[in-house]
Simulated scan of single mutants.
Amino acid sequence: MKESKRQLHKLSTKFVEATTEPGRHGDGGGLYLTVRPGGSRSWVFLFKVGSKRYEMGLGSFDARGQAGFSLAQARAKAAGAQAQLKNGENPLLASRATQNELVVRENRTFGAFADSYLASIQTRFRSSKTVVDWKRNIEVYAGPLREIAVDRISTDDVLSVLEPLWETRFRTAREFRGKIEQVLDAAKVKGVRSGENPARWKGHLEIILGRGQKRKAKHHPAPPYRSMPEIIRKLRQRHAIAATSASLALEY
């Protein structure tokens, strides 16, 4: 049965702003203004599902709707909750589920997950240096990834932090890539990520990055053959002092 217009919008903005009488003041449609003994005001939505009564906080009162909610805004929120009830939803449980989802998202950035993962495994390390290396990798080198949701990290994201290191600091980059892969594998095990690991090496990043820049051997120029007698003489002088495998090999 629908509430008549008389039963709705019983409160006025003037009353809401001025009243200091503690208690609940009904506006109709399940919306109430709660005034506390100290004078603070907040909105609450009361409703029933079956035989069970629920109380859903809608926020504090603010005439301008900036730090809290004005009367008009509170009515709109209550109307939204009423619509959920008509659709068979419990607005309080739906609101809690949304808040929980937001909390999970905030705590599931790559940075937050990597930090918590490191905290869970650092007791396995034999050296404190390993912990320092991990921290440097996930806090400094992986800095551009930290605010990205862990389930949104892509191959392009991984390449963006690896490529600047790959040709100049190959060993560091190689170890760094392994740590990213390990963090993303852990995220998949924890159920906060799915699909292929974008930091995977075999059959994936190896195709794009290759095996890094190989250092070229530095060769010394061969001495002129006319200088060989003098070189041999000096080597044999060294033999007389202390025979070394290096000088003997060089003479050979």
Rank of each mutant, 00 (worst) to 15 (best):
V104A: 15
F170K: 02
D27A: 11
Q122F: 03
I232M: 15
S194P: 00
I232E: 09
V104I: 13
A72T: 12
R177C: 06
E251K: 03
D185S: 13
L102T: 07
K234Q: 14
D156N: 10
R236D: 09
A83I: 08
K5H: 08
H220Q: 11
L8R: 12
R193V: 09
E163K: 15
H9V: 09
F15M: 11
A83Q: 10
V183L: 07
S120Q: 06
G178Q: 02
E55V: 12
R146Q: 04
K188Q: 09
L248I: 08
R6V: 08
R6M: 10
S40N: 11
R226E: 14
E21P: 00
R64I: 10
Q99A: 15
L248R: 10
F110D: 05
A72H: 07
W43T: 10
Y32W: 15
Y32G: 11
K48W: 13
G191D: 01
G203P: 07
R200G: 09
V161R: 05
A242I: 14
L118Q: 05
I153Y: 01
I121F: 03
Y141W: 09
L205T: 09
K216P: 01
E89Q: 14
G195W: 04
A74Q: 03
A246R: 11
L92D: 00
I138W: 00
F15Q: 07
S127Q: 01
A97Y: 00
R41Q: 12
Q66F: 10
Q122R: 14
G210A: 12
P221R: 15
F110S: 05
T130H: 14
Y141I: 11
E163H: 05
R108Y: 02
D62Q: 06
I241Y: 05
R53N: 11
S127F: 00
T244D: 02
V16R: 01
A79Q: 08
Q84N: 07
R136K: 09
F15D: 00
I180T: 04
D62P: 11
Y54R: 05
W201F: 12
L162M: 04
V140M: 02
V131S: 06
K52C: 08
A67H: 02
G111S: 04
L118E: 02
R169S: 13
K234E: 08
D157Q: 01
V103L: 14
L102P: 00
E101Y: 05
T98L: 14
R36C: 13
E101A: 15
P198W: 01
T123K: 12
N107H: 12
H9W: 00
V131R: 09
F110W: 07
G191Y: 02
G26H: 07
A79H: 03
G26T: 13
D157E: 03
I207G: 04
K48M: 13
G59C: 08
V192C: 13
K234Y: 07
A76Q: 09
R136I: 03
R236A: 07
S60H: 04
R126L: 06
A119Y: 00
R177Y: 03
Q99M: 10
L71K: 03
G65K: 04
F61P: 10
V150A: 08
S70H: 04
S247K: 00
R177L: 02
R236C: 12
L46H: 14
I153R: 01
Y141Q: 01
R24Y: 12
K129R: 13
I148D: 00
Q73L: 06
V49I: 14
A149D: 00
R105D: 03
